[in-house]
């Protein structure tokens, strides 16, 4: 089903780059074949995108997650002919709030803002304000405390549960049961929602001892490395690590490798399932990986953008439909990545 859809889209892109040309082409086909008829939805569909603009406000660029989403959104914008922009907060929450504030106040305002929340509250007030101003706000992967027009992303609680379960399974009664938890920024969705998932599982397993639960700052791999080094010295018998993100946990696995404990400490992490994931899994640095499938999220995101723009064209207010799309999660292992290779920005297609 997905294949058919995607090949359909692919065809579209190949037929024409502009809607005008493609419409002409189609109409000539209609005239040639008398049996066909005009789809009443088509014209409204395509016209709803003209002159619209979408802005993506990521916490960072230059890492596989955001680059992947960006690629997907960019491809759709080109195909459907609306404006698309990236305004990067570059790991600076204050810069992010500045960007959102100026988007709300600028003229003309964007129609849709896709926002990547650095934590659960910092942007909340501004998101509410943006929707009041008629801008559809779609939250991406990291959700704030309020719900806006749309949300696309992994279910952090579920990811936490899956990671915790794999660690619990590995660190049975015969091991020390000592576990290190690494989180993102203190109030980031990954930290607070994942923690909930962890607690749900760990509370049922009293043999697991959380020796440290520390923040890696802005998903900083060198901080992850320092923390892991410290904890490994304090607890040479550490059994498992629950990491927050594959990029960050490159530091974690480096510390484990440095201490000569590679393979002895169970590492569970999560991420977008990009090539980095495969590399870490293949060389045995990471034992358990929960992927939230960036290409799939990209598709969901594109669909929500499309839906929002159409709703806007119909004159609906931003809070009319509130749609959350939790991404189906995949657990990657050495075996599964052989069948489903990891994605990279170059392999993405629209």
């Amino acid at each position: 089903m997905t294949n058919i859809l995607s090949s359909f889209r692919k065809k579209w892109r190949s037929i024409a780059t502009t809607a005008v040309v493609s419409t002409l082409a189609m109409s000539s086909v209609v005239q040639a074949a008398q049996l066909s008829m005009n789809d009443p939805e088509r014209d409204a569909y395509y016209s709803s995108f003209s002159g619209k603009s979408v802005v993506f406000v990521p916490v960072f660029m230059g890492l596989d997650l955001t680059e992947g989403w960006n690629k997907m959104m960019e491809m759709q914008s080109k195909a459907l002919g609306y404006k698309y922009q990236v305004r990067n907060a570059n790991f600076n929450t204050q810069a992010g709030t500045r960007i959102l504030t100026s988007l709300i106040h600028q003229n003309p305002k964007p129609d849709v803002i896709v926002v990547h929340n650095p934590d659960v509250t910092s942007y909340a007030r501004l998101e509410k304000q943006a929707e009041k101003e008629g801008i559809f706000v779609i939250q991406l992967n990291m959700k704030s405390t309020i719900m806006t027009s749309g949300f696309v992303g992994g279910d952090a609680v579920q990811i936490g549960k899956l990671q915790a379960e794999s660690v619990v399974n590995h660190c049975g009664p015969k091991t020390s049961g000592k576990v290190l938890i690494l989180t993102g920024p203190t109030t980031s969705p990954w930290s607070v929602y994942m923690e909930k998932g962890y607690q749900e599982v760990l509370s049922k397993h009293p043999n697991i001892k959380v020796v440290a639960r520390q923040s890696t700052g802005n998903y900083d791999s060198s901080k992850a490395k320092s923390i892991t080094q410290v904890v490994l010295q304090q607890h040479p018998d550490l059994c498992g690590v629950m990491g927050v993100w594959d990029v960050t946990d490159q530091g974690t696995v480096a510390a484990i490798k440095d201490a000569g404990k590679k393979g002895k400490v169970f590492v569970s992490t999560s991420g977008g399932g990009g090539t980095l994931a495969c590399k870490l899994i293949e060389d045995g640095s990471v034992d358990n990986y929960v992927s939230y499938d960036v290409p799939g999220q990209g598709r969901d995101l594109d669909d929500l953008i499309s839906a929002s723009l159409q709703a806007k064209a119909r004159g609906e207010k931003p809070d009319f439909h509130k749609t959350a799309l939790y991404t189906p999660l995949h657990e990657l292992t050495k075996e599964s990545i052989k069948k489903h290779p990891c994605w990279s920005v170059d392999t993405m297609r629209y």
Binding site: D220, S221, G251, V253, A254
Partner: peptide, 15 residues
């Protein structure tokens, strides 16, 4: 070479 990774975001830190 010792950490097998170079995180250029180290620039943002207080190193």
């Amino acid at each position: 070479s010792s950490s097998a990774v170079m995180d250029t975001r180290i620039y943002n830190l207080s190193l």
